[in-house]
Simulated assay, not measured.
Amino acid sequence: MDMSTLPHHTATATATAATVPANACDVTPAGAAWLASAETYPQSLLTDWRARPTAPAVLSCGTVFDVVSVPAVFGRQMVDRLWHEGPGSGPVAAHRGRMLLFATPGTARRLPSLLAWEEWARAVPSLLCHGPGDAVTVPPLSPGQHPGDQLGSRWLVAPGSRRPWLPGPDVVLWACVRAARAATSPAVRISIFPRGDQSAKVYDVSRRR
């Protein structure tokens, strides 16, 4: 699989992606509104966030977004591939040793079956696909000394607009396969994560393809 097999809209993500903040780990008010829109009472959630901006939140999946949860190391490889060779990523968070990749609704249902057809499926570690009826814990809007920080809960690519671009199941599948190939290749991998701090604020979102 290569990027030429992806739908046209993924190759032109730059044209449709909304403006994001200079610091990719900062959730903007518009990004917070987008996250809150996943809930039945978004204004209540926004009020809670204003009162406790350093507290994590639990959000429902399946309507505004799905979430693909992967082990942290493999997730870094996926995000590296998305940004170096693909259309970039949607919001990405780290939580309790896993990467949370936000994707279009329907991804949680389609991705497992698509992956089952791939010859590299066995090289892909356990994926947790969260869709309708599921919920995920997301990092705080603002960094702070909340106990969740000790669990590595932070935004790596934070939502910065009311309608952030999200990858579909085909793009996530492509990233899975590319990461699996890279993991078995002896070639040196060029990572967007600096060696000294694998959790540093390193994403240059202006480079979205």
Score class of each variant (00 low, 15 high):
residue 3 M to G: 09
residue 8 H to E: 13
residue 11 A to D: 07
residue 12 T to M: 12
residue 12 T to V: 09
residue 12 T to W: 02
residue 15 A to E: 12
residue 17 A to V: 01
residue 19 T to P: 00
residue 19 T to A: 15
residue 27 V to Y: 02
residue 27 V to K: 06
residue 27 V to R: 06
residue 27 V to A: 09
residue 30 A to V: 00
residue 33 A to R: 13
residue 34 W to V: 03
residue 35 L to Y: 03
residue 36 A to Q: 05
residue 37 S to A: 15
residue 37 S to E: 06
residue 43 Q to H: 11
residue 43 Q to M: 12
residue 47 T to D: 14
residue 47 T to C: 07
residue 50 R to F: 03
residue 51 A to L: 14
residue 57 A to S: 14
residue 58 V to W: 02
residue 63 T to V: 14
residue 68 V to D: 09
residue 70 V to Q: 09
residue 71 P to N: 09
residue 73 V to Y: 03
residue 78 M to Q: 08
residue 79 V to Q: 10
residue 80 D to C: 05
residue 84 H to S: 12
residue 89 S to W: 00
residue 94 A to Y: 07
residue 97 G to F: 02
residue 99 M to Y: 04
residue 99 M to R: 13
residue 100 L to F: 01
residue 102 F to C: 13
residue 105 P to S: 08
residue 106 G to I: 01
residue 107 T to I: 05
residue 108 A to M: 03
residue 110 R to K: 12
residue 111 L to C: 09
residue 112 P to T: 05
residue 113 S to E: 11
residue 114 L to Y: 03
residue 118 E to C: 14
residue 122 R to V: 08
residue 123 A to M: 11
residue 128 L to H: 13
residue 128 L to W: 02
residue 131 G to M: 08
residue 135 A to H: 05
residue 136 V to P: 09
residue 139 P to Y: 02
residue 140 P to E: 10
residue 141 L to R: 14
residue 145 Q to V: 07
residue 148 G to R: 11
residue 148 G to S: 15
residue 149 D to K: 11
residue 151 L to W: 07
residue 161 S to R: 03
residue 161 S to G: 15
residue 166 L to M: 13
residue 170 D to V: 03
residue 177 V to S: 10
residue 177 V to L: 11
residue 181 R to W: 02
residue 182 A to L: 05
residue 190 I to P: 00
residue 191 S to G: 04
residue 191 S to F: 00
residue 193 F to E: 11
residue 193 F to I: 01
residue 197 D to T: 02
residue 197 D to M: 06
residue 198 Q to M: 09
residue 199 S to N: 13
residue 200 A to D: 15
residue 206 S to W: 01
residue 207 R to E: 11
residue 208 R to C: 04
residue 209 R to W: 01
